[in-house]
Amino acid sequence: MKSLLELSGVSVSFDGFRAINNLSFQIGEPELRAIIGPNGAGKTTFMDIITGKTRPDEGRVIWGEKSVSLLRMSESQIARAGIGRKFQKPTVFEAQTVRENLAMALKNPRGPFDVLLYRKTEAGAARIEELAREVGLHDDLPRQAGALSHGQKQWLEIGMLLAQDPRLLLVDEPAAGMTPAEREHTTDLLKRAARTRAVVVVEHDMEFVRRLDCRVTVLHEGSVLAEGSLDHVTANRDVIDVYLGR
């Protein structure tokens, strides 16, 4: 499997603190990967670098078959290239219905007048139905997004990202604040999404990571400490020491 995204020798410092330290990482397509690590391990900065929010001091970030450098691209260019990111707190349009939220995510182009002049198309309507089914919100299409549960808002936001058809989906702590049933549904949703694209899940909840049943990358002090199955990395002495604070 050829890598879709590759980081090599990436470092970034903030006020003398090395948040990312000579980090190398790659993921193929399709692939599901979990990223774990203690607080301060560099997980958020890692996603910030991929999405163009943070520029590294050194290293390479290479994307796609043509080996394009993401470091030469703006945040919006990176998003258009096929990288979608879901933050920990769901950001949906609460006053709009589920259907309208998904419709807004589908729309292209995105200028102010394009939004005003948007016309419903049959293909767009069918895609909205398909996305709603995929994330488990088909029965909720007419509901206001603000009336959804926390877990449902997370699914809606994942649906909005999938509407843009990203090749790489970065998902930050999706299990936080969810009920056990919602967590189970989220696991299934991410596993399905990863059948056709690369999905990176940053997560603290080990039970959730175990259910994802995928390759795990452990970050510590901005570098990869271990990689492999969850059983493999949790049996690693260095990983145990880091998590137990020894």
Results as ranks from 00 to 15, higher is better:
residue 167 R to D: 09
residue 193 A to S: 06
residue 171 V to I: 11
residue 186 T to F: 09
residue 153 K to C: 08
residue 116 L to T: 12
residue 185 H to G: 02
residue 165 D to F: 10
residue 185 H to W: 06
residue 119 R to Q: 14
residue 116 L to K: 11
residue 170 L to N: 01
residue 170 L to A: 06
residue 143 R to L: 11
residue 100 E to I: 11
residue 145 A to Q: 02
residue 102 L to I: 13
residue 153 K to E: 10
residue 190 L to M: 06
residue 88 Q to D: 05
residue 183 R to E: 07
residue 154 Q to F: 08
residue 168 L to R: 05
residue 131 L to E: 01
residue 168 L to H: 00
residue 164 Q to H: 12
residue 148 L to N: 00
residue 135 V to W: 04
residue 97 T to P: 01
residue 192 R to I: 03
residue 89 K to C: 15
residue 100 E to V: 12
residue 118 Y to G: 15
residue 106 L to G: 04
residue 154 Q to S: 12
residue 91 T to C: 11
residue 94 E to T: 05
residue 85 R to S: 02
residue 138 H to A: 14
residue 172 D to N: 12
residue 107 K to V: 15
residue 142 P to H: 07
residue 108 N to C: 14
residue 184 E to N: 02
residue 124 G to I: 08
residue 141 L to M: 05
residue 132 A to I: 10
residue 131 L to Y: 04
residue 107 K to I: 15
residue 113 F to W: 15
residue 98 V to W: 00
residue 168 L to G: 02
residue 87 F to I: 13
residue 166 P to V: 11
residue 194 A to V: 04
residue 88 Q to K: 13
residue 183 R to C: 06
residue 136 G to Y: 08
residue 192 R to Q: 07
residue 121 T to C: 08
residue 83 I to W: 02
residue 153 K to W: 10
residue 134 E to C: 13
residue 159 G to P: 04
residue 133 R to H: 15
residue 111 G to E: 04
residue 115 V to N: 06
residue 121 T to Q: 04
residue 171 V to K: 04
residue 143 R to D: 07
residue 116 L to D: 12
residue 169 L to A: 01
residue 135 V to C: 01
residue 118 Y to H: 13
residue 142 P to L: 11
residue 177 G to E: 09
residue 128 I to F: 05
residue 94 E to I: 12
residue 107 K to H: 15
residue 168 L to K: 07
residue 141 L to E: 04
residue 88 Q to S: 14
residue 179 T to P: 04
residue 135 V to S: 01
residue 163 A to S: 08
residue 154 Q to I: 12
residue 181 A to Y: 00
residue 157 E to A: 05
residue 89 K to G: 14
residue 126 A to P: 08
residue 162 L to S: 04
residue 148 L to H: 00
residue 88 Q to F: 10
residue 165 D to T: 14
residue 178 M to H: 06
residue 94 E to L: 15
residue 177 G to A: 01
residue 85 R to D: 02
residue 192 R to A: 09
residue 142 P to W: 06
residue 126 A to K: 10
residue 192 R to G: 05
residue 177 G to D: 09
residue 164 Q to A: 14
residue 144 Q to D: 12
residue 113 F to K: 10
residue 106 L to Y: 10
residue 98 V to I: 12
residue 139 D to C: 13
residue 106 L to P: 03
residue 150 H to M: 11
residue 88 Q to M: 12
residue 102 L to C: 07
residue 142 P to A: 05
residue 183 R to Y: 00
residue 87 F to R: 10
residue 104 M to W: 11
residue 161 L to I: 10
residue 110 R to C: 09
residue 188 D to E: 10
residue 115 V to I: 14
residue 164 Q to Y: 15
residue 124 G to P: 06
residue 116 L to C: 09
residue 97 T to K: 02
residue 165 D to S: 06
residue 156 L to T: 00
residue 155 W to Y: 03
residue 159 G to W: 03
residue 176 A to T: 13
residue 190 L to Q: 08
residue 91 T to V: 15
residue 127 R to F: 14
residue 89 K to R: 14
residue 144 Q to W: 12
residue 112 P to T: 07
residue 153 K to V: 07
residue 171 V to D: 00
residue 153 K to P: 08
residue 193 A to H: 04
residue 143 R to A: 02
residue 154 Q to D: 04
residue 156 L to K: 00
residue 171 V to C: 05
residue 179 T to M: 01
residue 183 R to S: 03
residue 162 L to E: 00
residue 123 A to P: 09
residue 159 G to I: 08
residue 117 L to M: 15
